[in-house]
Structure formats: structure tokens, C-alpha cells
Design a protein around this nucleic acid. Structure first.
Length: 263
DNA sequence: ATGGTGGGTAGCCCA
């Protein structure tokens, strides 16, 4: 059994003790973090080393964005894509189980896309769609079992948000984003593990705003995802959200997802 | 209801 977790941590240095608590309580074999918000030479390696996560792949930058994949299984770096072509650190891919064997694990932080769902008014929205389209071209060529995880910043299904009608014009749940993400899904036949294990229409939020009004009313969205190649998707045995962390002191606004595979 | 909160950073940007 192999367990893999993903978590948008919103500053790995600020919440390093929460990451340690999560690793001790859930013991995933691999953890993919997004929004580490630190340069690579500032990454807090010590805790991960101490807990046995000897293989660490950090794609970071000062201040913003950044991803890291921490593994206690053998792993080698496989790729770093810049799907916006602007130098932002939003992806790292690794091979688990030795070069040319096992699966490829892709850790991605898709851009949030700004506030206005119109690329003419808001360039960041266009960049988000362009990022997805470049990912789609990439996915068309995948020829190995692959798991892509991370903060997609899109809630694709009506039941992935607290109120579909109220959010259809809100970035993360607009028709154009959902359609563009759908093209990415179809390019490889990805299995949405969140919905394989927590079927529609069950509540499956992974993110709640820091703005307390939303939080108090449980106004969540499913922005974080774990999607597997078809064969690999058939090998998942369990999947869960760790909603507890959202109630820890000074939490990330996202919660971790964990999938266990029969491998 | 058209704000709000929370990061990193440096005189705002990003989420």
C-alpha cells in the first residue's frame, strides 16, 4: 500500500509544526505541498529529514507560489513545467519507485486567476486558462501511469461548491474554467479520485475562505484534487479529507487530501 | 452584503 497526500499549506515555514503534526498523525509515504511561499534555499528541510522524508523536491521562489514533494519512498526528479511561461514556480514532477518504473507524481499549483472572469479585463484569468490549455497539450502525450495532484483552483461540479447558482460568475466555478478543465480531463481520461471515493452529491470541500462570514456558514469549495491515469485510478483503495486541520490554530485555508493505492 | 482575512514582503502583491 502506498499513501500519497496533497496540501496547499499557504507558507510552509509559518506552518512547519502543523505539517509535522499532520505527518505524525497520518504517515503518508509522500506529501505534495503547494504555496510553500519560500525560496529553495529557505526551505525547512530539517523536520522532513527527521521524520524520514529523505527525498525532497522543492520548486520554490521568494514570496509567492512554490511547490514541494517530500517522499520517504525512493524518488527522482522528473520535470519542472512552466505552463504560464512566466517563471512562476507552480509544478514539480517526480518518479516514484526508480527511474523508468512505477508512477509519475505531478504536483501542481494552478493559478487562482484573479477576481474578474474576463481575460480582456483581467490578464490573470487569461493566464489561468492558458496554463490549463498548455497542461492539456502535455497530458495528450502522457504514456505512463501518472497521478496529478494539487490546488487546481477550480471546483468543476455543481456540488463542488456550497451554492452553484451563487457562484457561476465567480472565478473558480465559471463555465469557461470548467469547460477548459474538462478538456484537460478528456485529454488523458483522468480519474477524479475525490469523486470516485466521495460520490456526487456528497459534500467534499477542501477550502474555506479566511473571511469568517463564509467559514461560519460552511461555505466551502472543492478546489484541491487528485487525478489518476485510468489504470492507476483503478488501484486506489481509500481516499479522505483531513478537515480537522482547518480548525487548528492559525490554519491554512486548504485542507489535506490523502489517497491510498494498492501498489 | 460589493466588504471581509491572511500570507510574504517592503512601501503592495497575491490568494
Amino acid at each position: 500500500m502506498v499513501s500519497i497526500a496533497t496540501w496547499n499549506i499557504n507558507s510552509v515555514r509559518l506552518r512547519i509544526d502543523q505539517v509535522e503534526r499532520f505527518l505524525r498523525e497520518h504517515e503518508p509515504d509522500v506529501l505534495c505541498l503547494q504555496e510553500i511561499k519560500c525560496a529553495e534555499d529557505k526551505f525547512p528541510h530539517e523536520m522532513f529529514e527527521r521524520l524520514g522524508y529523505a527525498n525532497r523536491f522543492v520548486h520554490g521562489q521568494k514570496g509567492y507560489h512554490g511547490v514541494a514533494t517530500l517522499s520517504r519512498l525512493p524518488a527522482t526528479e522528473f520535470s519542472r513545467h512552466d505552463w504560464q511561461d512566466n517563471g512562476e514556480a507552480r509544478h514539480v514532477g517526480v518518479e516514484l519507485g526508480g527511474a523508468g518504473q512505477g508512477m509519475v507524481l505531478e504536483n501542481v499549483y494552478i493559478p487562482a486567476g484573479g477576481d474578474v472572469a474576463d481575460r480582456e479585463v483581467n490578464p490573470k484569468f487569461g493566464q489561468k486558462l492558458d496554463f490549463l490549455e498548455r497542461m492539456t497539450r502535455w497530458a495528450e502525450a502522457i504514456d505512463r501511469p501518472t497521478l496529478i495532484v494539487g490546488d487546481f483552483n477550480i471546483a468543476p461540479l455543481d456540488c463542488d461548491v456550497y451554492d452553484h447558482k451563487a457562484l457561476i460568475k465567480v472565478v473558480s466555478h465559471t463555465a469557461i474554467e470548467i469547460e477548459t478543465l474538462g478538456a484537460f480531463r478528456d485529454a488523458h481520461g483522468w480519474v477524479d479520485l475525490g469523486r470516485k471515493h466521495i460520490p456526487v452529491p456528497e459534500r467534499n470541500w477542501t477550502w474555506w475562505s479566511y473571511r469568517t462570514f463564509w467559514q461560519e456558514k460552511d461555505r466551502g469549495r472543492r478546489l484541491d484534487h487528485m487525478w489518476a491515469s485510468p489504470d492507476l485510478g483503478a488501484q486506489s483503495r481509500a481516499h479522505r479529507l483531513v478537515e480537522d486541520t482547518r480548525r487548528w490554530e492559525q490554519p491554512s485555508d486548504h485542507v489535506p487530501l490523502i489517497t491510498e493505492f494498492d501498489l
